[in-house]
Simulated scan of single mutants.
Amino acid sequence: MTAQNEGPITIHAVKDKADKREFVELAYRLNRGDPAWVPPLKNEVYDLLTPGKNPWFEHGKANYFLARRGGRTVGRISAHIDFLALEQPASQGMGPGTGNWGLLEAEDGETAHALIAAAEDWLRGQGMTRALGPLSISVWDEPGLLIEGFETPPTIMLGHNSPLYRAWIEAEGYQPVKKLYNYAVEIVDGFPPIVNRIVAAGEKNDRIRIRRVDKSKFDAEAKLIMGILNDAWSDNWGFVPLTDGEIAHVGKKLKDIVFEDLIRVAEVDGEPVAFMIVLPNINEKLIEMDGSLFPFNWAKLLWWLRKPRSKRLRVPLMGVVKKLQNSRMASTLAFMMIEYIRRDGVARYGAEQGDIGWVLDDNQGMNAVAEAINATVNRVYQLYDKKL
């Protein structure tokens, strides 16, 4: 990212299709030289930004800005407000007066300064008194700025950014408010003996049933899992409930990369109380595609999805209902689901490593689970805030 001093920076709100195209395309131009950056599929980026395509806009609004210098686009940023987030308790990280920004890309610090100022001005104009970011766009999409772990490409649904951005953001007066960890764990040879003992004890408990999802009942299974998620995560920092529209959207988006043997639901006395979702790392294919399925990438991707081989698997979501959290039963269910999926991941997908995250830095339960299976932090994301 080399700054070209060709005149003053001007900020322009995205107003039409040409502006939106510049907004999307800029990320590919600025990051193309970074071997660890994985180009997202462009149609998914457009859907993220577009009301009617992204159900987040049913409870949120956003504005997008471009920075130009000498007729060139040199940066971008989004500013947005989630009305459901405004209704959450301030003690949980969101709350009244909190707006967000994200999707930052900039050629240099001067550009980043102008973009962040524009996002803050828009948020102030909407009555916000605090900025929390970066979020792209929802807390359920890609929260946080990568501050550790730049060396290797991220797995599916994890963000990546230039290491320069941290200093630029902190120079604007933003303070760290929350860290999110991603853990890596070697899975070929299994887990430590204590984990195996817990799993074996759980298998002897007639109250427990660990089952695969039934993809023939996909919509019902997605609704069940997201219902557990909304309960399990409701006290977490940054929580914003997923709406029925968002649950349906997530299900549709993930349906092609959901495999029955990589998702488990745990039942106790016949009641579904926990789940674990694992996804094959489609980024291993996307990194070759430069964001486009054409002309032949769609065929390559479809062929891979028929029977994916994935060295790394990612756990983006897991949860246990609140009434069981911090109990011995919760730990047993977690270790059983992890071990069952580990076995299938190694045997059927050629997996060698698992990624678990994001995990909040104060989530004692999940951090303890990660420690028990000898997982180590390989990526750290930082969320910042600032009074407006």
Rank of each mutant, 00 (worst) to 15 (best):
M276S: 14
D219F: 01
Y174M: 08
V268Y: 14
E105G: 06
M337A: 05
N161W: 03
A13P: 14
R29A: 11
Q126M: 13
A131S: 12
P134M: 06
I194C: 01
W303Y: 10
N297A: 04
K17A: 11
I277N: 01
Y165P: 04
E87D: 14
K252Q: 08
V14F: 06
V268G: 07
D82A: 10
A299D: 01
T155E: 13
G60N: 04
R342W: 12
I257N: 02
D231K: 02
G144W: 09
E172L: 03
H80I: 08
P308W: 07
S331P: 00
R209F: 01
N205L: 10
D206I: 05
R211Q: 05
L104R: 04
I341T: 15
T73S: 06
D189L: 05
K42H: 09
F294Q: 05
G227M: 00
N367Y: 11
I187D: 05
I287S: 06
L132R: 14
W304G: 03
I169V: 15
M128D: 00
D108P: 02
Y64T: 05
V24L: 09
W298T: 00
L26V: 10
E44H: 14
V278I: 08
D361A: 11
V14T: 07
T155I: 08
D108C: 11
Y381K: 01
L158M: 15
G354M: 13
D219C: 00
N5K: 13
R69Y: 04
D290N: 15
K386T: 13
G173R: 10
E25K: 12
V265P: 02
F275K: 11
P51W: 01
N31W: 08
S162A: 12
A79N: 10
T243Q: 13
L49F: 08
A375L: 10
G95F: 11
E170Y: 06
I210M: 04
A118N: 05
L158H: 03
L305A: 07
Y174R: 05
A85C: 11
M318G: 12
A114F: 09
A248T: 14
T73L: 03
E120S: 12
S292T: 15
A368P: 04
N43F: 15
H113M: 06
I263F: 11
P280G: 00
E142Q: 15
K323W: 09
A131D: 03
I263K: 00
E172M: 12
P153I: 07
D385W: 15
N31G: 02
Y340W: 01
W304D: 04
A62E: 04
A220N: 02
M226P: 00
D189R: 13
W358N: 02
G7Y: 12
